[in-house]
């Protein structure tokens, strides 16, 4: 049963991921991305991380990709791009190198992670019985608002800075045009 769920969810993710980079229509690519995100959510559910699964869908599928689509529709860039033009010199070559490097890192991480997992049983206790099914949420809350509260707050500051910066940049250009 677990294997079936794993294979199906992974297939969803892979098909989606391939779709994102192969579809030339931006809207279709965004929809493929949604499929991938759903696959991740299914994986989370299978790992009994219900809260993460819900947040995955609410935040990524429900807000971020909707914003992508919103921008695509608003700017009217829903046409196939001409792929023969290369804005940066040698960017394809560099992308290939970077991709291979990332793949190598991932393989090493998984190989080492398997060793660690085999020798050490532990991590968060997310079994549904602990704390009447709310174990996920309680432990996440302790981590985020307890152990890692500084990092959490710094991240929110970073986001605010990004938003304010975006608004400032957008407004300055508008003022320059006028």
């Amino acid at each position: 049963m677990e294997l079936v769920v794993f294979v199906l969810a992974s297939a969803m993710m892979l098909i989606g991921a391939v779709g994102v980079i192969t579809r030339s229509n931006p809207v279709h690519a965004a929809l493929s991305l949604v499929l991938t995100l759903f696959g991740v959510a299914v994986h989370f559910v299978a790992l009994e991380a219900y809260f993460l699964a819900a947040v995955q869908i609410i935040v990524y599928a429900g807000a971020i990709v909707v914003l992508f689509l919103f921008v695509i529709m608003l700017l009217g860039v829903d046409k196939a791009e001409n792929l023969s033009a290369e804005p940066l010199v040698a960017q394809r070559w560099l992308a290939g190198v970077a991709g291979l490097g990332l793949l190598g890192l991932l393989v090493v991480a998984v190989a080492r992670g398997a060793d660690v997992l085999a020798t050490r049983a532990g991590g968060l206790d997310t079994s549904a019985e602990a704390a009447g099914g709310d174990a996920n949420i309680q432990q996440l809350a302790r981590s985020v608002f307890g152990d890692y509260v500084v990092a959490f707050e710094l991240t929110s500051v970073l986001l605010v800075v990004a938003v304010v910066g975006t608004v400032m940049l957008a407004r300055r250009r508008a003022a320059g045009d006028a």
């Binding site: 809207v27 949604v34 819900a54 869908i57 429900g62 919103f70």
Partner: peptide, 25 residues
Amino acid sequence: DPHIGVLFALAISSIAVYGIMLAGW
């Protein structure tokens, strides 16, 4: 009666945006 209860409803309502959005596009 999922553990995440009302979050499920929120997630579903955020999916519902797609129907309307894609229909128009």
